[in-house]
Design a binder for these strands. Structure first.
Lengths: 216, 216, 216, 216
DNA sequence: TATGAATGAGTGTTCATTCAT
DNA sequence: GATGAATGAACACTCATTCAT
């Protein structure tokens, strides 16, 4: 019945405009990855989408508005996927690794957005706030884990906020440096498991309890 | 009288031009810290120096040339000060902490240069190479330490280059996030000892040997 | 049934299209009153009508064509209503006041059209001609009255065309300045009788015969 | 002494930049007279000055800022020259005519500025305020004259503000219509004395005391 | 060395208009 | 008749860089 019409028509929710909109967001991510946000030209993005420059403004109010939307999606993904609460039956180490794994996966895909926000946050108050919120969201989540670790004797005496900030900094920036073409290993592909393995090892070790000296 | 003033003046090699040159470099760092390198306007820098825009080109061939020079100085400092070799009588932990301390000190002062290079490395091959070299220099140094730690049973099985990349990423980006006005803690001043304390703790723990689970 | 609905509908000539057409013209007038003709966006007008931008071009060939049509209606009203000839039994003063009253009433309603034409006449030859014709129509009518007044000893020696041009200028521009939101008295509502009273007094006095000095 | 240097050098106050600045303002007036302010292209103005488009922004922050400056000069001229107070020994009629004569002279030269301000005042709050102030300045001056005339029995019972508004409207708009290429008499040159003669006659008559009917 | 006016290529954005649906 | 996404020409404005003084 209604099924028929659904089969025959494009899904009613996916209008032509929404498709273009999504295409622009994807293309923008690719262009930002290569040129940075400041270097991203609206015309280039639209050329990548196969549309005229003016069409951009049918879907976004400005270049900045596009980045704000990309950031909103990015932040939403992080909130929903990364900040899943610790389940009762979950091993803290496993929880942390899961969190880190999700973090990695999202950043791996969206680091151009993060980089763009980082760049813009230096010169623009609005982006400074937006980016700050995103970082804080991640930091709060990790800080909770750090506090839990401290109850078990880990990282005793350290400020959980600072530790969380340092840890998210490591993951975030390492993701860029291991993923981007202009990163630390341009001639080498680092697969997800290797990356997550190294990062989660480092983080878990860093948060552990006992204080065995490095060389003994 | 005039003799006195001559005696008080800097050595004959420090000409008026060289002073302006240095002043430009300092001012540029301040402007980059606020606006980023892309947002840095030659005219603003020169205004901060109290000179006309045209005077910039007496001292630097271009805006990019200025950044290349800033980077050269930055890299030189890192090479000379951070990468001091491990002395025979030095405790590896202490060595690492010293290295980290120096790293921190230099970054704390020059992070605008690092940020500028990072940003430019995305769009410009020359800067990509220059910035890559600087990162590699740091990574090589830390990788050596990691290898030493592994001989003592730390971080066994992990790729020392990746570990070193992750660690330098943490320090570098944490330094930005704890120092810059648009960083993670805009309302809080984080003093050097606190910062170095947290970072060295995390790094030392991360590179240690035993593998005690987080929660037990 | 269908018969009924046909009976209830407007006359067959007033199609849906004609209604939209009229609605567009009314909405345009309102938008021009706020933004001017140059600032009038087709999309805004159509939004005010509750239709899509594209629908505009079903009814008008272009933005300019719309203004030309508005002008044609405006001119027609002026011709038919203002330029009624002096009847034999009519008092010249009363005739002038009647003319002025009608003039005022039309301008009060349609000044956005006049303003638009005025603005466009500066840059566009077509509108320059159209607007010139409308002004001339008014000037000719007033000039006839001036000539009549001169036969009675009023404004002797003055060029009737210039006098008529000055008088219509006064009425036209005063109407704008007393009516528009950005006019001379934004905080005050000037009712028709007051306005017509002042204007007709001034015009009648100005066209009178005797030359009593101002201060005696 | 110093005289010598003044003779040999360009006057110290008239720098190269100030000359260009003035040239731009003059050229802008000419372009606005032809195209209107909305139609005025910065590039055209600069071409008329014989400089590159970018040079405009050395002297003015924006197109709007240029108009604001033109308006400031215009308003200053009106304030200083038109609104000279009535001297004790001056005949009120002569005073009014002098006032009108100056008004005319300034408008004759600067009507493009007035027209531009009028156009912009419809869409822009800043210009609405600026233009309103200028009009009010003129209206206040004329209103004082009207009040004086009323004491001698002229225009009794009429609101002086409205009368003044109407009179300035007449002069202002008549000046445009008799001066601009797209005015009422494109094929005819109206010299200053004729114009002033007609206008002052009309105004003086309009403000007189006795109320002789038009036709008798 | 320094000035500062001038350059001119480059880009974000607007909006009247078109057209497939 | 109506839709609304798309077009594309146009234009204000920026800023690194140059150069006559």
């Amino acid at each position: 019945m209604n099924d028929d019409s659904e089969l025959n028509e494009p899904s009613p929710r996916v209008t032509k405009g929404a498709l273009t909109r999504t295409a622009i967001m994807q293309a923008a991510k690719r262009v930002i990855a290569i040129d940075g946000f400041a270097g991203m030209k609206v015309a280039d993005v639209m050329a990548a989408v196969g549309k005229s420059p003016g069409a951009f403004y049918v879907h976004f109010k400005s270049k900045e508005a596009l980045l704000h939307e990309l950031l909103a999606v990015f932040q939403h993904r992080l909130r929903v996927e990364v900040n899943a609460p610790l389940r009762a039956d979950e091993d803290p180490s496993a929880h942390l690794e899961n969190r880190l794994r999700t973090f990695w996966r999202i950043y791996r895909e969206d680091w151009p957005i993060a980089t763009a926000a980082f760049q813009m946050s230096m010169a623009d108050k609005q982006f400074a706030r937006a980016w700050h919120n995103i970082r804080q969201q991640g930091i709060r989540g990790f800080a909770a884990v750090v506090r839990a670790a401290q109850k078990s004797g880990g990282s005793v005496g350290l400020d959980p906020e600072l530790v969380a900030s340092a840890v998210t900094s490591m993951i975030e920036y390492a993701c860029y440096n291991w993923t981007a073409a202009t990163g630390d290993f341009p001639d080498r592909f680092i697969d997800d498991e290797t990356a997550i393995g190294v990062l989660s090892h480092l983080v878990l070790q860093a948060l552990r309890g006992s204080e065995v000296p490095l060389n003994q």
